[in-house]
Design a protein around this nucleic acid. Sequence first.
DNA 1: GTAGGGTTAG
Length: 695
Amino acid sequence: MATAVHPAAAVPATAAPAPPRPPPVRAALGHVPQLHAALLKSGELTASPKSFHSLLEAAAHGASPAQLSYAVRLFRLGPRPPLSVPCYNVLMRAFLRAGHLEDALHLFVEMLDAASIWPDQHTVACALKLCSRIVSLDAGRGVQAYAVKRGLMVDRFVLSSLIHMYASCGDVAAARLLFDAVEEKGVFMWNAIIAGYFRNGDWKEVVQLFKGMLEVGAPFDEVTLVSVATACGRTCDSNLGKWIGGYVEEKVMLGNRNLVTALVDMYAKCGELGKARSLFDGMQSRDVVAWSAMISGYTQADQCQEALALFSEMQVAEVEPNDVTMVSVLSACAVLGALETGKWMHSHIRKKCLPLTVVLGTTLVDFYAKCGCIDSAVEAFESMPVKNSWTWTALIKGMASNGRGREALELFSSMCKASIEPTDVTFIGVLMACSHSGLVEEGRQHFDSMTQDYGIQPRIEHYGCVVDLLGRAGLIDEAYQFIRAMPIEPNTVIWRALLSSCAVQKNVEVGEEAFKKIISLDRSHSGDYTLLSNIYASVGRWKDAAMIRKEMKDMGIQKTPGCSLIELDGVVFEFFAEDSDHPQLREIYEKVEEMIGKIKVAGYVPNTADARLDVDECEKEVSVSHHSEKLAIAFGLMKLRPGATIRLSKNLRVCTDCHSATKLISKVYNREIVVRDRNRFHHFKDGSCSCNDYW
DNA sequence: GTAGGGTTAG
């Protein structure tokens, strides 16, 4: 092998001694031109390939575009010694670092074409990185073929880069084959393979791999922990998650913001909101991702008020929210039915020109639909540049729950025409549409078509929709037979759907049967007893009705407290039945009395079937009048500007008494009232409801 | 001479 001879060594001994020169140093950034000039002047630049390489590297290492172009001129124009492979490598790395992928690619091709240049393991590692960046499996395979031909597959940098290339181009299986074949795996390889599974959302495999690492004592670093902690959150593996949390605290890694954010996310997803929050509060600096992680933690844990409160704090801290943050806060608004707050979020999105991504747009559609503003939902839907099956599904479900079944079905057929593949959830929306609008035949057809035309196996939720569809349409026996023929074991949701249909249809026999089934699975749900009792009462079997209520009382089954939410000036107020917490309770009760008095004149007769059990008969009327909805409506009448729509959302289904009362209130007070219950919307106007009393 | 990470919807 030829050895590069330093020109100084070739100088005859008799010649005058050369002045002492500093050894080729890597110049500090910014001193490149001076170094360049010095080397030119001494003649070393062209005489010493090593010096040229150092200068090139010094120039290429700089971060600025000016320095990179300096390096390119040095490389292309010279004066310089003949180019070596390391020089090419230096420039290629610089192109990659600067994100000039095309230039890097051209340089690589140039190397392959040059007669005297043989790309080495450094080049190959670089080229593979390039393939990962441009996500080109084909190019990556080509580079691998070259590496094999040149016997470079023993180099651990080449192997790591190759594993990374396959993993980031989506071929995790190929990455895994290579990975498994390597005996001595370093952190790079472990992180590359973990990142591959991470990218594919294969959280379980990420966790498995890490457990394997711990077993064999493989090395890991903070980046490994970020991926694994995130995966623990997604798989709810709180044991491993806590182990990582403890490790991070012990090893004093809490200064790593990404890692702590991953832990915040992990704790929140494992249900440890308190732990997540204390980590979050202890962070030295919180960027938008950290805030978003904590906010989404609250939203996903159904602590929506906390999510919105934290968003306010984020604004006080002057951290600009991004599209991801807005997704979480809008979902929170959707859950709370906080229309005004959500509208503010929407205008904020517009004002800040945040990108209307598919996810954000879908969240907006869902938000408006869940607030009963179906027209705004349609507007948001139409404004989206890109929609996917989630977007269509959100609107279909929104239409369905707002009682616009026909339109939901039309949307579904437009969706199919647009070649957007429906999913299992889409069909839940379609079946809900049929069920809420009494479209029995269409429902049957869609249910069959789902399996036959789309190969989607019905889940228990789909069966539930069909039971609901048949039962509410009065086809109780068919619904019952349908349940008996189900290939999967019916759960309480299925039997409950049947029971509530029986309550609507006053069917004692099947109702008793459904009740028995429910009790055998879960006897703790107060609503079931109420429904059966109501069925008895509706056919005049008062003794049986009373017996069921006594049974419930004896067993100590508590009614789930009814809760209604109403938003006023961006603040969400919560009302519970017999609420005793509100500062203006007296005025609210007076307003309720006024309301009841006025609607009685219009024909309202209290229905005490849903009254509390622990009061005597004459108090029941008062008890019913203090249902959370009536308190919230009274509050709305007191506080909202005249004529404004009263919107509330509640945790249970609307009871019969509140339903008939609200219809009359809408007429007597000439107000639109929109109530979202746990299943659907009721738009009350002029004494009638959009559900046509079918709910 | 190597790579890499955290937040989002029906």
